[in-house]
Design a protein around this nucleic acid. Structure first.
Lengths: 195, 195
DNA sequence: CTCCTTTCCTAAACCAGTTCATTTTTAGTT
DNA sequence: AACTAAAAATGAACTGGTTTAGGAAAGGAG
């Protein structure tokens, strides 16, 4: 099952599974290939899967009443993505999760994950830790949106996630950082004229 | 150990513990009483405890370079609070956690909690679930800060958490919602003149 | 290669929310 | 009750970021 190795490697950073447990885990995984612009989650439908990115790039975004998009998260190789709220509460999604490039994904259904958590309690630790880290990240991001100016947030993102910034469309980046594409353009212009 | 009952009741919503396990859990708990304005977490010191509020009200806030405060969370009766990031990474805190009223708290050290998680794996489920919910909440809050105007965010908060809003100082509420006290004052004025 | 769509850039008018400076109200303390 | 300090209100001047409307560049499909 070589195709699932990346996920097993990811798991092994947090928890040690026996070969049997690994096999059991893998039995619930599914490979999914998607083309650019294809959505794997849409508002109105419950988000069933947790999705791991083997190859490619995706984003989760919300569309508000004025049809404006707000990017909630990006995911590239070795990241997870989903409409988290929809998945854990088994409610209709509010987000789109869309491929920004042709991508190869590995998915596990939330209900299967819950079953696995019962079977292999060690996995709970994995879930807890990655969720804790996601929470800490999200808290920092919210603070930053209040504390830093648009330009500071842009700089921070370029420093930490330049690899992502250079791969995703500009409107997606601007809507992640919480300002308009026009303003992103203005920021970049300001920078290039300075140097 | 009647004094710890509120925490046990909280736990029981997520996981069933035997009497032995309950006793073991309780053995790590400590009661803490604090006066208004007293801080239980400060920048520079590692946040050791997870804190449950038996009675009273607290807030966690960040102070930026311009000495402006940004409230990250409130906690009243039956809520938990801490500098989450500092606690899980065992790094110096960046937040203050301050009592807004004289309060009675129950604390558990993070290291003790980790030990308990090893001893009583059932507890992992508890940790995972409350963290997942906190994450979903945080994600909604960030989206809302991008999508909604200051006034809409104020209205939402009043609807959902009116009980908190009426208990905390106005500057704390404004800094939670992400705008200035002056503007909050303006919003309230607008409303009272309308009705 | 050409057409067409999507993405990116620019600039001026505009507005939601801030800043600053001062006053009024409230709450805590002796 | 009187004093003090903290919190809330007010209003005028200002600004970071949006909006609107356009044109330029880049990528994909035939």
């Amino acid at each position: 099952m070589k195709e699932f190795d990346p996920v097993l490697e990811y798991l092994s950073r947090y928890v040690n599974l026996s070969d049997d447990e690994k096999a059991r885990f893998i039995s619930f995984l599914k490979i999914k290939k998607v083309k650019k612009r294809q959505c794997i989650v849409q508002p109105g439908f419950v988000c069933i899967h947790k999705t791991y990115v083997v190859k490619g790039a995706l984003r989760a975004y919300f569309v508000d009443q004025e049809d404006k998009e707000h990017t909630q998260a990006f995911a590239i190789e070795d990241w997870w993505i989903s409409d988290y709220s929809s998945m854990i509460y088994q409610e209709p999604a509010t987000l789109f999760v869309e491929a920004l490039e042709d991508s190869i994904l590995i998915q596990i259904a939330h209900t299967d994950m819950l079953r696995l958590l019962e079977e292999i309690p060690k996995l709970e630790k994995f879930e807890r830790i990655i969720t804790q880290r996601a929470l800490a990240f999200q808290q920092k991001r919210l603070l930053s949106s209040f504390i830093n100016t648009a330009e500071e947030r842009y700089d921070d993102f370029m420093n930490k996630y330049g690899a992502i910034a250079n791969r995703v469309p500009q409107y997606a980046l601007a809507s992640y950082l919480g300002f308009s594409t026009e303003y992103l353009s203005k920021i970049r212009n300001r920078k290039s004229s300075k140097s």
